[in-house]
Nucleic acid binder design. Sequence first.
DNA 1: TTGTATGCGTTATCAA
DNA 2: TTGATAACGCATACAA
Lengths: 390, 390
Amino acid sequence: MTSNEATTPPGARTGSTGAADAAPPGRPAADRVTSRDVARAAGVSQAAVSLVLGDKWRGRVSPGKAQAVRAAARELGYRPNLAARSLRTGRTRTVLLVVPALTTEFFARVYTGAARVAADHGLGVVLYPSSEGIGPSHPAPATTPGAGPVRPPSVPDPFDSAAATLDGVIASSMAAEALTALRAADLPLVMLDSDPDDDRATATVNLDIADGVRQLTGHLTALGHRRITHLAADVRSWTFEVRARAVSEALSRVPGVRLRRLPAALGVDAGLRAAHTALTGPGPRPTALLCDDDIIAAGACKAVRRLGLRVPEDVSVTGFDDLALAVAVEPELTTVRLPAEDFGEAGMRALMAALDGRPDRAPTLPVELVARGSTAPPADAPENAARPGG
Amino acid sequence: MTSNEATTPPGARTGSTGAADAAPPGRPAADRVTSRDVARAAGVSQAAVSLVLGDKWRGRVSPGKAQAVRAAARELGYRPNLAARSLRTGRTRTVLLVVPALTTEFFARVYTGAARVAADHGLGVVLYPSSEGIGPSHPAPATTPGAGPVRPPSVPDPFDSAAATLDGVIASSMAAEALTALRAADLPLVMLDSDPDDDRATATVNLDIADGVRQLTGHLTALGHRRITHLAADVRSWTFEVRARAVSEALSRVPGVRLRRLPAALGVDAGLRAAHTALTGPGPRPTALLCDDDIIAAGACKAVRRLGLRVPEDVSVTGFDDLALAVAVEPELTTVRLPAEDFGEAGMRALMAALDGRPDRAPTLPVELVARGSTAPPADAPENAARPGG
DNA sequence: TTGTATGCGTTATCAA
DNA sequence: TTGATAACGCATACAA
């Protein structure tokens, strides 16, 4: 019953930054700046460093030296080794939050609250979605990425110093700006659903978002739609930029198509407002609303009905992600299903490959159109209205 | 800018299991069994223990002694100190998964896939919902608890040995069975949304679920509903048991009420099926469907319409949690809003109190009815149909 | 005020 | 095969 199948290949962890000359036996290539380094640089003892940085040097270290220590620490980018600290103190200042897996919006907010208070007290919080504690479970859908404008992080970056507890990082669908923080820890970093050309990543794993978009536009144009408005998520991340590009490219190849684009924040309400604008704007009304995710699509459906129109008879609506939401609304949403679990697995495999120094072919996973009730031929489709004299 | 407000009160961490006589300075009361203890018990050297347990004793330890070591380790409940190991090896066999906060169903599944593969390789995964990477964000709703039948955990318990990295645990809305695993680590354990009488918890923090139910039933009966069916979540956890009890109690005090109860799995589809059964069963049709969460309620609404009936004119439907879903469907759901963030904060405060050896008054947080479009007076309400001769 | 020394529990290197 | 023993990086009690 002992697990030994996971013995790490010896001699792994080669590559990367040139290691110091004669490396002691079991030395990793991670953090290299120790409190002793800081002490040397500041011309003080290692103990003094510990005292100053622990903020308990009240009357035990001269102010001048304290300053020097602080400066040296900042200069060298010193980050305490958490393993050593916790070995010594017996505490970790880290707390685990266990939540039932898959029931999430709620727990995300629980986490937020907990993490905020914890941060105020210098504690970190780690989420553990337990697979126990979830219901009998139905087939279970996939959901949306979402990334956005940078705002001051309210919880401490785990990369800041907890990096010592980590071998690597997987980051999914993050806003580009958020990634620089990750890079700082110089840990192996696998990016999911992100720009494959971003050189901050050790490896990248992606979904074939562009193909999903093509399936969607193909579905719509095959149905006969020619006036299509793209309700584009108002978020600056790769995943949404790709969608916009793919929509434009795919539809530019279909003659007679009129494509418009409207930004929409993530959310039911924002989707409703954007759709309202799209449907009441000047010129002939669009016959299809292509939405960047299911939530926006749900809002769009509400807007259609509020205008006294019907989905899909008057206006077709498509989503993206195939959330539980997609089948909760009526009509059910035509959308694109994302292979979330496979995606996670691929990300982990890529990280482990990086950890072992193995090269990895960054895979791109296929996605699948799910046609449901929210799409239909337009009222003025070629078959009925578009013929001469229709 | 240095954080020192969080200096832990000296002499904290008193209470609990009687500490060994003369405790060395900075010694925590956590794990006490070291590899040396095992070595002594097995009559071997400490190094031998490390080799045997690391499964690399190929030709370096005699089979007999290896057996003895294994036995002693099991006997004493030995769990390696992760801090020490990682200090020595420089690796942690732990990986961080960063996800945008609040966008969740998807990432829960990403996590599942990643954690599964990681587990196969002896790695742990820790979730970090980054507050960067989420969109502009709207008011943001709360969501549902959910817990259920035990099934073999597919990922390793962090409590098994990672406990050395933790000071405490907060567990939210977990199925009762899942909690025994937590207890094993003998860490301070705060339970959220769980049975306050459960003595496995160091402290308990709860939402006033019962009051939420009372607000709901009050709303319904004030509207004139007398035939109410409770679509009860088919999940054995405290939070749902309380709802069932509260529904019964509250409605038993209103004369003329006919209450029925039907189990429903968590999920849109299950809600639909249960509602269908409720609406087509023998006897007069219920005029209101009181659902244990918003998802079930969404399914119930679909069932109502499929029977050619209208929400809320023919059948009122209520949810619970106030998810994003609640306003995505039409009509929007009357539901109960849960103060998720406050809840998380309270949980963390309780844990910190426990950590400091402070007693804590386990708070119960109020919840709030949100009346929306899915409820209305019944067609046979006292005002129109229930009067004599009506 | 300062520096020195010890130990946290492991793993890994050596001599025996 | 085995048993000492030396780090790993930090916090702290103690001696200067």
